[in-house]
Structure formats: C-alpha cells, structure tokens
Amino acid sequence: MPEGKKTYYINISDGEIQSVSTASPWNFKIEANDEEITALREIFDQSHSTGWQNFMRAHVPYVQYHYDRENDALDRQLIQTYEMIHKLGDEEARNHIESMGILPEK
C-alpha cells in the first residue's frame, strides 16, 4: 500500500466511508490518504445537500428532469464520486465502474 494511504470501504447509496469492512455494507474498497478522503466526503456532503433540494422540489411535476438544474448537479456529483472511486479503488472497483459506462470518455 502506498505510504500515507489507508484502506476504506465505501457505501455509495448512504454516502458512508468506513475504515472497517464489517461496520456496515459497502460497495467499493479504496486506498486513500487523508486529503483524498476529505475530498470524497465533500462530494458526498454536496450530493446529500442536492438530494434534499430535489426531495423538497419533488412535488413540482411541471419541471421536466432534463430542465432541472438540481438534477444536473446531482448527476455531476455522482460522476465525480465514481471518478474518484475509480482513481482510488482496487482492481475490482475499477473494473465494476468501467463496466457501468458512467465515466466520460477521456
């Protein structure tokens, strides 16, 4: 493991970052330093905030999804999350994310 990096277990749907694999269900295993974990936590926090904005607006049926800025922000945050997990994840995490086809072409 690279120096200064620790193993973390990520639960995407709950936005959880755990250092113990048995603490709760997880989707991806990553190796990250403190700065990288802080950046991932900030993305999760932004997604949670945007998610609440969407929840509060859910009763406005005349705004179509593709015209909704909050949905655009949530989509960008989701892609940022997967990009970061792809960068920091183990081989299984990278392969799974690549198979999803969610990352933009480089």
Rank of each mutant, 00 (worst) to 15 (best):
M1H: 10
M1T: 11
P2V: 02
E3M: 08
G4F: 02
K5F: 11
K5C: 12
T7R: 15
Y9E: 04
Y9P: 07
N11T: 05
S13G: 02
D14N: 13
E16L: 13
E16M: 11
I17M: 03
I17D: 00
I17R: 02
S21C: 06
P25G: 06
E31Y: 09
N33Q: 02
N33L: 01
N33W: 01
D34E: 15
D34F: 04
E35D: 14
E35W: 03
A39E: 14
L40R: 05
E42P: 01
I43C: 02
D45A: 14
D45I: 09
Q46I: 00
H48Y: 03
H48I: 09
W52V: 15
Q53H: 06
Q53R: 13
M56T: 10
M56Y: 07
M56I: 10
R57G: 05
H59P: 03
V60S: 03
P61E: 04
P61V: 06
P61N: 09
Q64F: 07
Y65Q: 13
H66F: 07
D68H: 13
R69P: 08
E70C: 07
L78D: 11
L78Q: 13
L78C: 09
L78E: 08
T81I: 06
T81P: 00
Y82L: 15
E83H: 08
E83A: 07
I85T: 10
K87P: 02
G89R: 08
E92Q: 14
E92K: 15
A93P: 04
A93R: 10
R94H: 08
N95Y: 00
I97Q: 02
I97T: 06
M100L: 15
M100P: 06
G101I: 05
G101H: 05
I102T: 10
I102Y: 00
L103P: 00
L103F: 02
L103H: 05
P104A: 07
E105Q: 12
E105D: 05
K106M: 08
